[in-house]
């Protein structure tokens, strides 16, 4: 509760024109916004540009932030998501979505993905640490549809709870869960196709 009050006080100072408060907000949230933009757009340069745009938009509209409706983090994430959607609609980022035609039954050896992953000495989290694997997962994430991509980014990369994600995405909580499940499943199937490359 103290953190919320401190953040709200920071916002109030910022609205009154305190440059130091604004600098503190930028320092505190730029990494998070950059990561959301980077995972959504897939490009570091685009992510940097989008992050700057997000903060410019925030700076102009910070006075509209209502502390009673949502936390600052949720509000910032909403601003970020709206900007990403706008850019996506403008066609700046091409949607590269594969179909979900890859089923577990298509595997050559008849093993499920989990069985394959379990065959490894280390788990997926350990294996994904390598640069090559990181790259493949990142590319697979880009191939998800924007609706699924933003849902899994907010949940699995930003650790937001379903309620806040529902506020950000402006959809019911059930829809959020459904999108997260579908996003995770589709990502696993896309990686399963490239399983040989990953391993």
């Amino acid at each position: 509760m103290d953190d919320i009050q401190a953040v709200n006080a920071l916002v109030r100072r910022c609205v009154t024109g305190d440059a130091a408060a604004w600098q503190e907000i930028v320092q505190q949230y730029h990494r998070r916004i950059y990561n959301i933009c980077y995972r959504f757009s897939g490009s570091p340069d685009d992510a940097a540009d989008l992050t700057q745009e997000v903060f410019i938009k925030m700076y102009r509209t910070l006075s509209t932030f209502d502390t009673a409706r949502a936390s600052l983090m949720t509000w910032i994430t909403t601003v970020t998501r709206n900007l990403l959607v706008d850019h996506f609609r403008k066609g700046k980022y091409d949607r590269v979505t594969d179909s979900l035609d890859a089923t577990p039954g298509n595997q050559d050896d008849g093993l499920t993905l989990v069985e394959k992953l379990e065959d490894r000495s280390a788990g997926p989290e350990a294996r994904v640490r390598s640069q090559e694997t990181q790259k493949l997962v990142h590319e697979a994430l880009r191939k998800l549809s924007p609706e699924l991509r933003e849902a899994v980014i907010l949940r699995d990369l930003q650790d937001m709870d379903y309620k806040d994600i529902a506020i950000v995405l402006k959809v019911p909580e059930g829809t959020v869960k459904s999108r997260i499940n579908r996003g995770r499943t589709e990502l696993a199937r896309l990686l399963q196709r490239n399983y040989k490359q990953v391993s």
Binding site: L113, V114, P124, L141, V152, G183, R184, A188, L191
Partner: peptide, 10 residues
């Protein structure tokens, strides 16, 4: 299984 694996990858 797939959803769990996808979450771990992410």
């Amino acid at each position: 299984e797939e959803a769990t694996a996808g979450m771990h990858w992410l």
